[in-house]
């Protein structure tokens, strides 16, 4: 699981069918000091995160689990909105 910040969103009408209804957001990976540590990725939003919010996301094929669909070609999904970080 990783920390990130939502920095934008993507509209794609033509996408794999099990993704319909899911928002796709741009996330910039952060460290615990909220510094950007890698290039932005695209993640499926399953918690209703908005631009600017600090979130946590999971990668690899586990990213499909919160989507509750049988199969989806997704390798990153947002699973939580962060209230505070003490590190």
């Amino acid at each position: 699981m990783f920390l990130g910040r939502v920095i934008g969103s993507i509209w794609a009408t033509k996408k794999y069918e099990t993704l319909t209804g899911f928002k796709l957001l741009f996330v910039e990976p952060l460290n615990s000091d909220k510094k950007v540590i890698a290039d932005p990725i695209i993640a499926v939003d399953t918690v209703g995160a908005g631009p600017g919010e600090i979130i946590c996301y999971i990668t690899a094929s586990e990213a499909v689990i919160p989507m509750d669909v049988e199969m989806a070609p997704v390798d990153a999904s947002i699973v939580g909105i962060v209230d505070s970080i003490n590190s």
Binding site: I7, I10, T13, K14, Y16, P51, G52
Partner: peptide, 18 residues
């Protein structure tokens, strides 16, 4: 690697959170 969506529009808002 699989192409799973074709992009219509991107919206990048770099509003900083706390």
């Amino acid at each position: 690697a699989v192409i799973m969506a074709i992009v219509d529009k991107l919206d990048i808002s770099n509003s900083e959170d706390s």
